[in-house]
Amino acid sequence: MNSADLIELYRTVVTIRFAELRIREHVEAEGFGGFWHPGIGQEGVQAGAVAAMRSDDYLYYAHRGLGYAIAKGMDMAVLFGDLLGRSTGSTGGKGGGTVHFADQSRGVLGQGGTLGSNFVMGAGTATASQLLGDGRVTVVFFGDGAAGRGTWHEAALQASVWKLPVVWVCENNGWALSARFTDQSPTPNIADRAPAYGMPGVIVDGQDPIAVHDATSEAIGRARSGEGPTLIEAKTLRIRGHYEGDRQPYREDKVADDEIPNDPVHRLGEQVDDDTRRQIDAEAREKVAAAFDEALAAPRADPSVIFEAVWA
């Protein structure tokens, strides 16, 4: 990765971090209309993988955080609008939670609220690209918990048989709500399941955005050239509860005070010179604050939105 790209990647990672912190501040101070599933500490996976995508590649994100969409270039004021149930959100105010936002122009195709939906949807979108020959790759994010769904098997099998241009990116943060990954997996890694589908399974340090970027870039290259899917497992850690406010009574090794092991922000920041880093930090903080204020100031949706977009 050249130094200009590295600096941009740092900017993305730190922007996501400030967004995480701003949202938490809001949730703690004022409560919240939905459940916020914090992705703090996992910014390196989200930013690193998306940085390897082309702007017209397709993205299905997972439920933890907004990092994927920020990295794909969605307007933060719009994203915060979705979170806060504002009419200016990408869903026109039907949001109010972390689950749904989309931007067709940037290939951000959304997420199913029933975890594991993204597997079959993503394989289908990749089928469309294969049929149309449009050269696009679909990247599907999921957690270690969602990997338990049967949809994974159905989609992974067909995607490999058809050599679809799709990349599976698992953020293995060790926890599916109260279930410890190692209690629900017979093998130590999600990537161990890849050989059954005849595809490469790659394990990467999720706290290292550059390593995630490089692994994803290679997988996207394979996908784009017709060699089929890759399963990438990024090892990371859930820092907070399942949702903000979850006291995690089921967890003995809670992370205290945001002590993020191998914090991707610091790890990447060390490779950026101090002046540049300070300037990026200040700009990112300011940009997040302004976007959040803009979303807060926007009106809530008119109730008529209930009846909109049922039909095309």
Binding site: G124, T125, A126, A128
Partner: peptide
């Protein structure tokens, strides 16, 4: 689940 979910995804992909 793939036949129907995949169709949904393929519709989003322009087919």
């Amino acid at each position: 689940t793939f036949i129907v979910g995949g169709a949904a995804g393929a519709a989003l992909g322009g087919t």
